[in-house]
Design a protein around this nucleic acid. Structure first.
Length: 416
DNA sequence: CCTCCACAGGAAGCGCAGGAGT
DNA sequence: ACTCCTGCGCTTCCTGTGGAGG
């Protein structure tokens, strides 16, 4: 009995089951949630609606190319318009099909083709057929479908950069080849320069119509957050100042609505975990730090091993306060020692110099070339992320966590 | 004023992995 | 199964350089 009461989980679960004092509906803050109303995107919604409207009478409309920075509502607006369009098409009994594909998650030409086949009711094996064969089956499926198919290719720039515009070229030509098939392509891209990668024929066909999404201002972000907050939280669980801060922080980062919603969601989660009943500015600041730390940790985790060792060396030097050793040479010395400690073959100093440059470009460190006269030229290194973050990163890596307590021989007896 | 340190950073080339074409 | 090609990570070799100390 006693052990049951002491169970550390029981309190957490009980509180959860009793219901949150903050959240009413968490789903409303997710990225893929499409609300009933999208503030400050009326223009884009109207334009997209006008372009797509002919499909309701069975006519093919122009292909559309949509671009804008991340979190500017491209995907949300597209989903919103297509949702209403599909509904209407059922009403007027002029069915159309929609196939929504995110090129980042779907990844390859072949897998996109299987999705397309699926949407016209053709089953294809997930492997074994040539791309050409699958494409033929898709065209036949489209022909026998007899309806308009709207394909949305989200994050199209990712696909083209990885696999070229071959598939896109063939898709844009479907309408010219077969009279029966009616295909509308909506391409969405985060990257404005991506157009330069495209074959001019593909580009002209794809961007028969273009839609640009500019970043949201802080005011607009606030309106978006307010709408969502009313849906997601219980009355009185948030105040205006907290929302304004979320909006301002996200606006300073190219007006990213996704970022603003993340901030709000994480603030709420922290507040809830701390047993608070209201989200205030403090929680927003904590959320910003948490998001930033998570982002940095994610970058650190994906670094190549030797870059991690360089960072571990920087950690070891900084921990001992030996700022005068924070140069390429000093770091290289510690690095080679850590290598022999781990049983690794060290890379050359030239290469490490390059890796330091890469860490600088990533913003993890700050490397500045300085001249020390008689003592030559070198790069002065400054750590650009909190020591705490670096420490927790090192502690989770089994090969590197010994560095936390390690005192390099080459630094011993060294003056501060 | 000149020297010379301790690197920076460019150029070339090597071995390897993965993809495309046959 | 094979060749060829390309990109990547790395090494080797190299020339260039700002300024403290002679």
């Amino acid at each position: 009995m006693k052990s049951l009461e002491r169970n550390p989980l029981s309190g957490i679960f009980d509180r959860y089951i009793q219901g949150s004092s903050i959240f009413k509906n968490r789903e409303c803050l997710r990225h893929d949630y499409v609300p009933e109303y999208l503030p400050h995107r009326e223009d884009q919604i109207t334009k997209l609606g006008l372009i797509l409207a002919p499909t309701l009478r069975g006519y093919r409309c122009s292909n559309i190319f949509i671009y804008g920075k991340p979190g500017t509502g491209k995907t949300a607006v597209t989903r919103y318009v297509l949702k209403h369009l599909s509904r209407k098409s059922v009403e007027v009994n002029n069915p159309l099909k929609v196939c929504f594909i995110n090129c980042r998650t779907v990844g390859t030409d072949y897998r996109i083709l299987t999705y397309l086949c699926d949407s016209v009711g053709v089953k294809v094996p997930f492997t074994g057929l040539s791309k050409g064969e699958v494409f033929e089956r898709f065209k036949n499926g489209l022909k026998s479908l007899g309806a308009i198919l709207i394909i949305v290719l989200d994050e199209l720039d990712v696909l083209v950069r990885k696999h070229g515009d071959d598939l896109l070229y063939r898709l844009t030509r479907v309408n010219e080849e077969s009279e029966c098939g009616k295909l509308v392509i909506i391409g969405i891209s985060n990257d404005l320069q991506f157009k330069e990668y495209l074959d001019p024929r593909v580009l002209s066909s794809l961007s028969e119509e273009e839609l640009v999404f500019r970043p949201y201002t802080a005011e607009e972000l606030y309106d978006i957050l307010l709408d969502r907050a009313k849906l997601a939280f219980n009355p009185g669980a948030f105040d205006e100042a907290a929302l304004r801060l979320c909006a301002a922080l996200a606006a300073s980062e190219h007006g990213d609505a996704r970022r603003a919603l993340d901030l709000l969601r994480v603030s709420a989660e922290i507040a809830e975990r701390e047993g608070a009943t209201k989200i205030d500015e403090n929680y927003v600041r904590m959320a910003q730090m948490k998001i930033e730390e998570d982002r940095v940790l994610e970058v650190l985790r994906t670094l190549p091993l030797h870059s991690k060792l360089v960072l571990a060396s920087i950690f070891a030097i900084k921990r001992r306060g030996l700022n005068n050793r924070m140069m390429t040479g000093g770091i290289y010395e510690v690095y080679t020692e850590l290598c022999s400690e781990t049983g690794l073959e060290p890379l050359t100093q030239r290469r490490i110099s390059g890796l330091i440059g890469e860490l600088d470009a990533l913003g993890i460190i700050n490397a500045k070339v300085v001249s020390l006269g008689r003592h030559g030229r070198s790069k002065k290194i400054r750590l650009n992320i909190p020591m705490k973050t670096l420490r927790s990163f090192l502690s989770e890596d089994l090969r590197l966590n010994f560095v936390l307590e390690y005192s390099p021989k080459c630094l011993r007896g060294g003056q501060a």
